[in-house]
């Protein structure tokens, strides 16, 4: 019992990634245990998206190892589709399928990959939609919804595959300010329900309330890993401190 619950869901070790000559990730190490909630922050271009995309095997990497429950993840290995299926991803731009209704967006994966029948997939999807408070929008098309609603639907779509780990890449950055809260509320509820998640965000209020650990990245490196209390107490390196200073003053 003890050993299985302490086995990490995700292990990233010595991860290096280049875009041509540009060294985007430098020796990134990160271990995420079951039920852990990690918030990743850092200045623009620091490699946050790149790290998350490597974890989900959307990008190739040149050095290091990423393991999901012990299994190596790499875009070129056969198990990559299974790994992606086991990891839910929420994008900044929502990326809902515009030709499908919200319900079909959510049931597509379960029906085609998990081989659920349509009624089964739809009843499961309706439960997820009620979790993201969208049950009355099931039959609508994505373009009929607000950004906040689309992002909540996208969260439901990722959850429908029963992922072991959820990745969020700046899920609220493309939203109008009044819709940010409805998405953060859904994410907070997920966190409280024990979902393992890595969340790239600049929402420091969310980080403070939800994160078990905050990871601060700069120039492709993880320069700081701290729990929220220590992080916001400025109990860390100068760069992180000035970053926290700019984001919180920017919000005030």
């Amino acid at each position: 019992m003890m050993s299985s619950s302490s086995r990490p869901i995700l292990e990233v070790s010595g991860l290096n990634k280049w875009f041509g000559a540009m060294h985007a990730l430098r020796d990134v190490d990160l271990t995420v245990g079951a039920g852990e909630r990690i918030v990743v922050c850092g200045p623009s271009g620091s490699g946050k998206s790149t790290m998350v995309r490597c974890i989900n095997a959307l990008e190739r990497y040149q050095k290091g190892l990423i393991r999901l429950e012990g299994e190596a993840i790499n875009p070129d290995c056969d198990s990559v589709l299974g790994a992606r299926r086991a990891i839910g991803m929420v994008f900044q731009a929502f990326n809902l399928f515009p030709h499908l209704s919200i319900l079909d967006n959510i049931t597509l994966g379960p029906r085609k990959l998990l081989r659920l029948s349509r009624p089964d997939a739809e009843s499961a999807a309706m439960i997820l939609l009620s979790q993201v408070r969208m049950e009355d929008q099931a039959r609508k098309m994505p373009s009929q919804l607000s950004g906040g609603q689309q992002q909540r639907a996208a969260i439901a779509r990722a959850l429908a595959m029963n992922p072991k780990l959820m990745l969020f890449d700046e899920p609220t950055s493309a939203l109008d300010p009044e819709m940010v809260k409805e998405v953060l509320d859904v994410m907070t509820a997920l966190a409280e329900a024990g979902t393992t998640m890595i969340c790239v965000t600049h929402e420091m209020g969310f980080a403070k309330a939800v994160a078990d650990r905050i990871v601060f990245m700069d120039q492709g490196k993880i320069v700081e890993t701290a729990d929220p209390t220590a992080f916001f107490a400025g109990d860390c390196c100068d760069r992180a401190r000035s970053f926290v200073g700019t984001t919180t003053s920017g919000q005030a």
């Binding site: 992606r84 990326n95 399928f97 990959l113 779509r157």
Partner: peptide
């Protein structure tokens, strides 16, 4: 078709053919 569509399909776990048949071709 925006690149994000194929990425969203990949993130669900769709391979080349499923992505083509259910996501990119219909669009």
């Amino acid at each position: 078709i925006p690149k994000g569509q194929a990425e969203a399909a990949a993130a669900i776990g769709f391979g080349y053919w499923r992505t083509a048949i259910y996501v990119t071709l219909p669009q």
